[in-house]
């Protein structure tokens, strides 16, 4: 996922922002875990992995084009 040639938002920053927005809206991550069934978890996991793959592909394509 990480490609150092690209400007990236530090992971911690993203974490803190997401966490603070959750807090602001009165949502607790612990409660969210309970709302998920195993099946949903699996589905979401697959979805995220697929998207991650696509992003990697996209980044690689760009990289090849620049290094040519």
């Amino acid at each position: 996922m990480s490609d150092h040639s690209k400007p990236q938002i530090p992971e911690k920053v993203v974490e803190v922002v997401v966490d603070s927005i959750f807090k602001k809206n009165g949502v607790k991550p612990e409660e969210l875990k309970k709302n998920l069934s195993d099946e949903q978890k699996k589905m979401l996991k697959e979805m995220v992995e697929d998207l991650k793959k696509q992003v990697d592909q996209f980044n690689n394509k760009n990289k090849i084009e620049t290094s040519e």
Binding site: M1, K6, I9, L36, F58, N59
Partner: peptide, 21 residues
Amino acid sequence: AVNIQALLQILLALIVLVDIF
């Protein structure tokens, strides 16, 4: 590319937060 990277990061952070990974 930057946008996509940022969005993926948000998504991953969310996923970790709700304990899917």
